[in-house]
Amino acid sequence: MAAKQTTSSLSRLSLPAKMVFGLILMAVVAALYFVVFFTDVDGQIGQAIAREQQLKGDLQKAEEAKVAYNKDVELRAEKQRVEREQKKVLPDEAETPSFLSSMQGIASISGVTLAQYKPEDEVAEDYYVRVPMSLELSGRFHQIARFFYGVGQLDRVINIEDIEMTVVPNQKKDDATSDVILNVKCLATAFRAKRADDATKGKKQ
């Protein structure tokens, strides 16, 4: 009955009134659609913004982690480099063959004759172990000085101690300016890192 009355009421409206009513109805439907659609889009935009912020935060954390990682890699590489340099100066082992090879190489470059060498007993100190080697060499004074200088330029610390110099007897001089030949006995002492079993070995009293 109500539907018939509504239809009857609409039929009694003039054409302009019907057009106005239709426009109002369309506006209401459009408004409802806009509200529903906009609410959904606004929610999606909000989620997208939140996701973007999260991704930016994750990216920043990743960049910070990358910087920290690169810093750790650099520090580790620097630490390893320092350890390698320290092992050159104070190796873990006596490395007697390398020690002797260094002495022979410097003697050859300096022009001296390394006549004799003898590894001596190691001596444990508080923080390191002495690795001594007795040397006997001969040459002119400037050659001997060059040999000592060359030893001082090595990466590994080697001390030259207990130096004894004597003139080689019965030398033949070609002229008055010829240098005399010296015979040198000395103790070349290298060092190595101390181990637990070196606590009392050969320690000086």
Rank of each mutant, 00 (worst) to 15 (best):
residue 145 A to L: 09
residue 146 R to Y: 08
residue 147 F to T: 04
residue 147 F to M: 06
residue 147 F to E: 02
residue 149 Y to H: 12
residue 150 G to S: 05
residue 150 G to L: 01
residue 152 G to I: 02
residue 152 G to F: 05
residue 153 Q to N: 04
residue 154 L to T: 02
residue 157 V to L: 15
residue 157 V to K: 14
residue 158 I to K: 05
residue 159 N to Q: 10
residue 160 I to A: 10
residue 160 I to D: 07
residue 161 E to M: 09
residue 162 D to K: 07
residue 163 I to K: 05
residue 163 I to S: 07
residue 164 E to M: 13
residue 166 T to S: 15
residue 166 T to C: 07
residue 166 T to P: 01
residue 166 T to A: 11
residue 167 V to S: 09
residue 169 P to K: 04
residue 170 N to C: 11
residue 170 N to L: 14
residue 170 N to K: 15
residue 171 Q to S: 08
residue 171 Q to I: 10
residue 172 K to I: 12
residue 174 D to N: 14
residue 176 A to V: 14
residue 176 A to P: 00
residue 177 T to G: 09
residue 178 S to H: 12
residue 178 S to I: 06
residue 179 D to Q: 13
residue 180 V to Y: 14
residue 182 L to K: 06
residue 182 L to Y: 04
residue 184 V to W: 00
residue 184 V to L: 03
residue 185 K to Y: 06
residue 185 K to P: 07
residue 186 C to Y: 09
residue 186 C to T: 01
residue 186 C to L: 07
residue 188 A to C: 01
residue 188 A to F: 04
residue 190 A to E: 03
residue 190 A to T: 02
residue 190 A to R: 01
residue 190 A to M: 06
residue 191 F to W: 13
residue 191 F to S: 10
residue 192 R to L: 03
residue 192 R to I: 05
residue 193 A to W: 05
residue 193 A to H: 10
